[in-house]
Simulated assay, not measured.
Amino acid sequence: MSRPRCMQCQRPLSHCLCRLIPRLPSQTHLLILQHPDEQRHALNTARLAALGLLNARLEIGEVFAELPAWLDQGYRDCLLFPGESARVLPVQGDDRPLRLIVPDGTWRKARRLLYCNPLLQTLPRVCLPDGLSSRYRLRKAPQAGALSTIEAVVVALQLQEGEGRFAELLAPFEALIDGQIAAMGDVLYQRHHSPKPTQPAD
């Protein structure tokens, strides 16, 4: 029998994160396109990002037939996804505010979203700078600079609109990680996930 869940954050009621989720304004609009498999992920950070921002929208699916209607509408649309043509944030343009379209899923599933929605492939691409590291202490990043969706959103918004303005978005993310570590137990966490000490050079 499944445990009762919060209708908003989708966490078990005993571990509800809603008290930590802010409601932050932003000039930049976030359109997060989530692969359906991510809904069941224990760390559904895209949902936390969408709940924490007043100017954000979360859509779940693999093919988004209504995507053309969601785009433009007074915004400059850019795809937050690496590629040879991607420009590092922040980006300047005309007087219209920026809209970031953010695919949410593993790298393979995110690329699948682009394949299934060719309109995404026509959008200008933006990316984050090199050298970032994730706070997700329970998972080894699949590649250098790989962040969870909520971390990528926070970095992108702070680059575009100002450092420190969106750090509060990470509070439920940090609590979620701390809760998972507590459930695992310190001994098991230290054995499998704690950073290994570096060996001194000879």
Rank of each mutant, 00 (worst) to 15 (best):
Q8M: 09
E151L: 02
R99W: 06
K140L: 13
Q8W: 07
A146K: 02
L67N: 04
L120N: 10
G93N: 11
K109T: 03
L51C: 07
E168N: 07
D202F: 11
E59D: 05
E66I: 09
A167V: 10
A141R: 04
F64S: 05
G145W: 01
A65N: 14
K109Y: 01
H192K: 15
A171H: 03
L114D: 08
E174H: 09
T45D: 04
C18E: 13
L53D: 00
Q160V: 02
A144N: 08
C6D: 09
Q143A: 14
N44A: 13
L24R: 01
P172T: 12
L51T: 09
L188H: 13
F81M: 04
L30Y: 01
L17S: 08
P129F: 14
L13E: 15
L30G: 01
L159V: 08
H193G: 10
V63H: 14
G162L: 07
P103M: 10
A152H: 00
E161F: 06
A50S: 10
G162P: 05
K140Y: 11
G74Y: 12
A175Q: 12
F166N: 00
P4I: 13
G83T: 07
A86L: 11
L53V: 11
R57T: 15
R135D: 06
R11H: 12
M184N: 04
T106I: 10
T149I: 11
R111S: 07
G74F: 13
L31D: 06
L80R: 00
L113T: 02
Y115E: 10
C6P: 03
E168L: 08
D72L: 05
L98A: 07
R87Q: 13
C16Q: 02
S134F: 01
V155N: 05
C116E: 15
A171M: 05
R165I: 02
L48V: 05
D72H: 08
V155Q: 11
Q27H: 05
L89H: 00
H29S: 03
E59H: 03
H15I: 02
P103C: 09
A171V: 04
I32S: 01
Y115W: 06
L71P: 03
Y136G: 02
C116W: 14
V153T: 08
I150A: 02
D37Q: 12
G61A: 05
L157D: 00
P172W: 01
R23P: 01
E174Y: 11
G162Q: 07
L119I: 15
E168V: 07
G185N: 13
S194H: 15
L79D: 00
V126N: 04
A56P: 02
V102G: 03
H41K: 11
G83I: 06
P103K: 06
V63Q: 14
G162T: 06
K109C: 03
E168C: 03
R57F: 04
N44C: 13
K109F: 02
P97C: 13
F166L: 03
C127G: 07
A110I: 03
L79F: 06
P142A: 14
T198W: 14
T122W: 10
L54D: 15
D186H: 08
R47A: 05
R108M: 13
V102H: 04
A65L: 15
G61L: 01
R125F: 09
A141Q: 10
V102E: 03
E174Q: 14
A49H: 01
L120G: 08
W70V: 00
R99E: 06
